[in-house]
Computed example of a mutant assay.
Amino acid sequence: MLRKTGSPDRVLVAVRDEEWGDALPSQRRFQVSPDARILAYTRPDTEALELVRRDGRATNIGGVREGDVRFSPDGKVLAVVRIGYDTQLVTRVDLSRFEADTWAELRSPTWIEHCADGLVVLHLDDHESDACLTLLPWEGAPQRLVQTEWGLSRFTVAKAGRRIVYFHRKGIYAVEGPGAAPERIGSVPDSYVGLVQNAEMSPDGRSVAFTSGRGLYVIEGSAEPALRGAADEAVHSIWFSRDGRELAWASGARAVWRKDGEERTLEAEGAPIAAMRFLQASPGLIVSRGREVLRWSPARGEVEGITTLDDAGKGLLGADVFDGGIVLWTGTPWEQARPKPRL
């Protein structure tokens, strides 16, 4: 829903959408463009992606079934993974005109990120046996960057450059754009649990942060991964600021912010932190804690309550700022009942 002061809440979409496995990345449910002028959100009921501009203009992209969605860093292009017949379509939307065209057809894209050269896509090869990283340049044909056997779990890119870091089983690799050979730059720590689930890179490519869902590790330059905080901390959110100087991450128990060696923490205080993002059009972070939305300004040591859910039966899954209001993603908590044993 969209909440504005002095106006009734505007429900954008309300559906029953049960999550049985891993949590859905918040970017696949809703996100705001880097200039905070466009809101993109998915509708599970119609399998469409809705785009709304601050001036009221709106459009939708059909065939989106929890596929990846990503704004370019300059806010001019939106990349969307859509359903195809035998492959999936990666669609490019010109946000100045709301016009869409097919960027590429690939098998089973699972993650996309923009770099300076275009869009990098993690997908399967034509035989569905190998994992591939392919660059879709702003102009021209797709370029294969990496092809390897199963086990490539996640990648991240330098948004202002061309460096790509990916995680293949226990190895950490870097590739410096088309034509470059992958180079092993490190190993996932022996104490690590499972495959890498989330990773982010600073825009200049100098720092990488990643997690399997337990603990946060940071690679600075060519150094080995270093643990930040507790190894068993269930980290769900990782972000670098637009200039790359700030790194923030969050678990249900706390949110942490680092800049130039300084570190500050926002505790859960009895209400779990569900999500956290950097604000797009102003300094600071927006934090979803319990049923409360907070604006956290670590550099100034300030925490401000923005709004609170009135319905005690609903939980807050995420929030962001758009068009002078707050976008709220809410859900109804539920527990799966265990079947009674048969005697």
Rank of each mutant, 00 (worst) to 15 (best):
P8R: 00
R10V: 06
L12W: 06
V13F: 01
E18G: 06
W20K: 13
D22E: 12
A23T: 14
R29L: 09
V32K: 09
S33G: 13
S33M: 00
P34L: 14
I38D: 12
I38G: 11
R43Y: 00
A48N: 10
G56R: 09
G63Y: 02
V69Q: 13
P73M: 10
K76N: 12
K76T: 08
L78V: 08
I83L: 06
G84A: 11
Y85C: 04
L89P: 03
V90P: 05
V90N: 02
V93H: 07
L95F: 11
S96K: 15
L106H: 09
I112A: 06
I112T: 04
A116Y: 02
D117F: 10
D125C: 06
E128M: 00
C132A: 04
L133C: 01
T134G: 06
T134C: 00
P137G: 01
W138L: 11
Q143D: 04
Q147A: 08
E149P: 01
W150N: 04
R154Y: 03
T156A: 10
K159D: 10
R163E: 06
Y166G: 08
K170D: 15
I172F: 02
V175L: 12
G177C: 08
G177K: 10
R184M: 09
I185P: 14
S187Q: 12
V193W: 09
Q197L: 05
M201A: 13
R206T: 14
F210G: 05
V218G: 05
I219F: 01
G221N: 11
R228Y: 01
A230L: 11
A230I: 05
W239F: 15
F240H: 10
S241C: 12
G244R: 14
R245I: 00
R245A: 14
E246M: 11
L247R: 03
A248C: 14
W249V: 03
W249F: 15
A250F: 06
A253V: 00
R254C: 10
R254D: 01
V256W: 13
W257N: 12
K259L: 04
E263W: 02
I273H: 05
A274Y: 02
Q280E: 09
P283M: 07
R289D: 12
R289C: 07
E292G: 03
R295Y: 04
S297D: 14
S297M: 10
S297Q: 12
G301Y: 04
V303T: 14
I306Y: 02
L309V: 03
L309S: 00
D310S: 10
D311L: 04
G315Q: 15
L317H: 09
V321F: 04
L328E: 03
L328R: 06
T330Y: 01
T332P: 04
W334G: 13
W334H: 14
E335I: 07
R338T: 11
